[in-house]
Structure formats: structure tokens, C-alpha cells
Design a protein around this nucleic acid. Structure first.
Length: 326
DNA sequence: CCTCCCCA
DNA sequence: TGGGGAGGG
């Protein structure tokens, strides 16, 4: 379970919303929507957010309720969507399919073994947001004038790349592997109660006196979402060994161990498919009336579910506009 | 120090 | 999902 290990290595600190006010946050859209839908809206077993046509549109409620948090703290979100498989290179398609099949196979194994935790974890990995959810999310964000970027592959990789280039101040994600994608600063817990948590890449590297490449090597030894780690190797040992031997290959050779597809996984973190073809205006001017009509009439969402959210959006965006003039 | 397991 | 304790190496 690599993510917990990465957390122990990461330089984390609590920040206040005031400290990050005025910044642009590249949000991994899939991650954000998925977490919001599962934790807050409980969409999977709710008929409340299902239209008469049987389409699940809890995402619309999630967006209307989740966006005000950004605006009220003067944060500009840029939603970065995962790329469609067809836009990816052939080997990338093959790689993703392979990973997906692997995850599904592990899910089956976990189910058969009665391992509920592992099954839930694998389910989260294999679960995809439906096409309807992706499309209606994009449309609602368009009406609300929230910037959207289309990633060629992983949204998380694209968001990290944008932050690295300086086109975003932070990546917004709950995942720790934005560190592995080279995101300088990641904000976690942006939509939950309490203060956000800041994850700092340079501070993480300094703390252990390692390079970014070595951090990726360390993570791979512990295990990532894309590879099993080496049994008996945790964060401490991984750091020690990578610093002693220099890089992943030297560590694996010295131990007589191997990681399947190690070169591809490593490359995936260090040089993922990303694009420079994006352009957005961070001066947000939402058409709340059109957005409300889209949500409540086109998709038949109960107006009571989104009334407060739209009010907060109206208030906070007007407020922000005033702030900029004073 | 790692892993497994339980609790909040 | 992450923090803490038991047990094993």
C-alpha cells in the first residue's frame, strides 16, 4: 500500500486558506469528482440524483456544492480531465488496458478471499466515472466559467506538469503521487472541513537529501498504484538503499529483486504524456441562471438540493470581483 | 523495521 | 484513510 508509505516520507504542513488565497489550483477532476461523490453525496445507492431516464447526475450536485469553497477562499480552480483513450498513443493504450485488467483481476482475487478492504481499494481503482458524468460535469463547469483542461492521459500528471511550469500555483488532489509526478506544491483536503494540508516536493527531497528521480525509485520499492513493492522494504529501507546504491536499478541488482515493467512505471512518473495545448482565463464570470436551468431543468435535479450552492457561488464570485477592485 | 490488524 | 499496537525477523 504505497500511498501510506509516501505519506510518511512527504513534507506536510497545515496551511490556512488565507495563506493560499488568490492562487490557481489545478484540480485533478476525476479524483475530485470521485471522492466528492463517494464521500459526500453517496451517489451509488441514492435514487435522489437519478433522472427519470435513469441517468446518475449526482456530480452536478457535487460541483454546485463543492465549488463555493474555492470561490469563498479566493481560489481559482482549473479542472483537469483525464484524456480519452483514443487520444493516447498505442503503447499508452496497451499499458492502461493492462493495468486495468490487472486491477480487475486483483479485485476478483480480493473478493474471493473475502478481503473487503482490498476489494474496496481495487474497486475505486477500476471504477470509472460514466460518460454522462464526464460530459455533464464539463458542461456545468463551462456554464459556470470554470477553466477546464483536457489532459492527453492522466489528469494528475497534467495538473502536476502545469504546476511545475508555473501555470498553476498548486495541484489540488488527495493523492500523494502528485509528488512522483513532480508537482512542487499539492493541496489536500480542499473540500473537507478544516484547513488544507500542503505537501511540498522540494522540502520532501531536502528532508531526505534525495533527488526527484530517487523519490520515484523509493516509492516504487515500497509499491505504487502501478507496481507491487518489494516485500520487506518499507520507507526507511527504501530511502537507505536508494541513497546507498544510487538508483532503483542498482538497488534491485544488489538485492537480486525485480519489479515488472519497472522502466515503464518509472518513465510514467518522470515523463508522462502531457500537453501544452491549454488556455484558460482565470477571471471567472459564471452564468448562474443558465447553470441553474441546466441542473434543475435539463437534468431534473431538485432545486432545493442546489439552491444554497448557487447562492454561495453568486455571492462569492461577486465578492471576489469587488475585492479585485479595492 | 516491516507487516498485519483494529480502531476512530 | 491514517494512527497505533502486537508480533516477528
Amino acid at each position: 500500500m504505497g500511498n501510506a508509505d509516501l505519506r510518511t516520507l512527504a513534507a506536510l504542513s497545515e496551511v490556512s486558506f488565507d495563506e493560499v488565497a488568490g492562487s490557481v489550483v489545478a484540480v485533478d477532476a476525476h479524483n475530485w469528482l470521485y471522492r466528492y461523490l463517494t464521500t459526500t453525496v453517496k451517489w451509488t445507492n441514492s435514487e435522489k440524483y437519478t433522472t427519470s431516464e435513469g441517468e446518475e447526475v449526482a456530480n452536478l450536485v457535487g460541483i454546485v456544492q463543492g465549488l463555493p469553497k474555492f470561490f469563498e477562499h479566493d481560489l481559482t480552480p482549473v479542472f483537469v480531465f483525464d484524456g480519452g483513450v483514443t487520444e493516447m498513443k498505442d503503447d499508452e493504450v496497451a499499458k492502461r488496458r493492462e493495468q486495468r485488467e490487472k486491477a480487475e483481476a486483483r479485485l476478483e482475487e480480493a473478493r474471493e478471499a473475502g478481503d473487503a478492504v482490498e476489494a474496496a481499494r481495487m474497486e475505486a481503482r477500476t471504477q470509472r466515472l460514466t460518460d454522462t458524468i464526464q460530459e455533464t460535469s464539463r458542461e456545468l463547469l463551462r456554464l459556470l466559467d470554470v477553466p477546464v483542461v483536457e489532459a492527453p492521459a492522466e489528469g494528475e500528471a497534467q495538473a502536476s506538469y502545469m504546476a511545475r511550469k508555473g501555470d498553476a500555483d498548486y495541484v489540488g488532489s488527495e493523492d500523494y503521487d502528485t509528488l512522483l509526478f513532480g508537482a512542487p506544491y499539492t493541496l489536500r483536503q480542499l473540500t473537507s472541513k478544516g484547513n488544507p494540508e500542503l505537501m511540498d516536493l522540494d522540502a520532501t527531497l531536502d528532508k531526505h537529501d534525495i533527488t526527484w528521480e530517487q523519490l520515484v525509485d523509493i516509492a516504487m520499492l515500497c509499491g505504487t498504484d502501478f507496481n507491487e513493492g518489494i516485500s520487506g522494504v518499507g520507507p526507511k529501507t527504501a530511502v537507505k538503499e536508494v541513497k546507498k546504491h544510487g538508483d532503483l536499478w542498482a538497488v534491485l541488482e544488489a538485492r537480486g529483486d525485480s519489479i515488472p515493467n519497472a522502466d515503464r512505471v518509472r518513465e510514467f512518473f518522470l515523463d508522462p504524456p502531457v500537453t501544452d495545448e491549454y488556455d484558460y482565463d482565470i477571471d471567472i464570470d459564471p452564468d448562474v441562471a443558465a447553470a441553474r436551468e441546466y441542473v434543475t431543468e435539463t437534468w431534473e435535479v431538485d432545486p432545493d438540493e442546489v439552491r444554497r450552492g448557487f447562492e454561495r457561488i453568486e455571492d462569492s464570485v461577486v465578492q471576489t470581483g469587488l475585492d479585485r477592485w479595492t
